[in-house]
Every structure is written in structure tokens, then in C-alpha cells.
Amino acid sequence: MFNGKEFTTIRRSAIAAMLLALSSYSLLGYMAIFSHQAVADPEADRQAMRTFYQKRFPDVAPEAHKDGVYAFDENAREQWLELEDFPPYEIAIDEGQELFATPLADGGNYSDCFGDGAVKNRFPYFDEQQGEVITLELAINTCRDQHGDQPLPYNGAEITRLTAYIAFQSRGQTIAVAVANEGALAAYNDGKRFYASRRGQLNFACTSCHVQLAGNRLRAEYLSASLGHVSHWPAYRLKWQDVGSLHQRFARCIKQVGAEPFPPQSKEYRNLEYFLTYISNGLPLNGPSIRK
């Protein structure tokens, strides 16, 4: 029917057509996956994370992750509970309470902005007018500014004591962050990207330890789940011998992987906090706390 030359030509054309069809199919498939992942759906992310950790820690209820590694490391939990009998962060709460009531430059005080201080579950939120994520620390400095006072340094003791008091007043509130508009979604996605991006000379992402390796040991320590990472701050770290902020903890993590940390309250960290807080929606606030 066909001579050898015609047969070769037909065979080549058929192979080319098959290859083209296959590559188009792969490309379409890749585009579908990519577009699905690129368009952030915060609630789908949160549910996926909860499901993932439920499988990883079948004996731990999602809400129990508010206690970090103490949710699944029995020995550490016992030590922690003993420390909680006389918590080392108590002094910070007392000092924070005093600062909270201290008059600012115009005679007003923080209660003009934060009532009785039980406001932690309102933060962080995305401010559409300012086009950025507002954290509790940022709001404290805005309050000071409104009362004619100088802003506090974000890595200083005074602001951490104030947030310790506010966290204490807010204990038991449920985390309920909203991602309600395009700007908020962009900030959420930015925080999500930061959390999953490898950085530093050790080439680690936050997800390397707290998603992929969560529940495993890194030297003597268990790696905690991302759920509940924001619920208990500020925290007294035994390593610091002081109460420190969530952003100080971010900076330590970034430094540990060999990257240069960002300043506290930088846009990068605020968006990261926003993402992590959304992921922890539904968990109770239980700060201040104690961590190693």
C-alpha cells in the first residue's frame, strides 16, 4: 500500500502528532495545577493544613496545637506545666498593666484606644485605607502618636510588656482573622509565600520544619506544627531569659537558617503573621506563654 519512504514519513508524522498532543496535555495540566495553586483560597488552605496535621498527629486535637510542641511532647509538657505554676512572664504582665494605665503625652492613656485591653483577637487585620496589615504593635504606636507621644522601638522591652498585658487580658478569645478583600488576599498570599520560600545558606523554608518535618526531632527538640504558632505570643523564652515578641522569634528562625533577618514589624513579618494567624483561626488565644 505504502512504499518504505511514505511509510517512514507517515510514521514520523504520527509520532510528532502524538508528542504534540502529549505536551499540550501536560502543559494544560500544569497550567491547571499552577493556576489552582496561584489563586489563593485562604479557607481551603486552612482546611488543608488542619487535615494534614490531623493525619500527622492523630492523637492531637487541632485546638491543642495552641500549646505548640507541648501538645504532643509529654516530657516537655510536664516541665512546662510545672513552670506555669510560677510563670516567669508574670512580671512582664504586671509591668505591662502599669504602662497601660500610665498617662501619655496629652494625658490620655492606652485604654482610650484599647478599652480594657482585651483586644488581641482584633489583630492582625488588613487596613484597606492604609493598604497594609496592622498588628497590635503597630496599633500601640498609632495610639501613642494620636496622644502626641513618640513611638516605641519594636524590639524594646516596653512594647513587649504592653503586649504581654494585652495578651493576658485577651486569653480565651478565639482567633478569627478575616481576608475580606483583594488587598487582604495579596497580603495573605505574600505571607504564605514567605512561609514556604527557602532562604538562607542552609536553604530552609519555614515549611521545611513546621510542615514537612513537623513532629520529628531536630537534635533534642520536637518540631511544632504551624497551627497555633501565633496563639501564645509574646512568650517568655528560657533561651532569652525574657519575654519576647513573635517577630523576634521570626528573626531568630530566619537567622538560624543563615539568612539576614528582616526588622520587627517589617511588611514581610506582618504579612507572615497575617497568614499564620489566619491558618490558626478557631484556636483560642493563650498568651503570654513559656517556650524553651
Partner: peptide, 25 residues
Amino acid sequence: RLADASLTQAQAEQTAWLHRFPKMP
């Protein structure tokens, strides 16, 4: 050399990060 390597990392991470989250089954 370190800055070059970190730029390579930044370039790779532009899309690589997308695959590091659990997905709904």
C-alpha cells in the same frame, strides 16, 4: 559568590514555594 547563590535561590523560589503546602485530597 554568596550573593550570586542567594539570587539563584530567590529565582528558584519564585515558583518552587507553591508546592510546599498540603493540598486537600
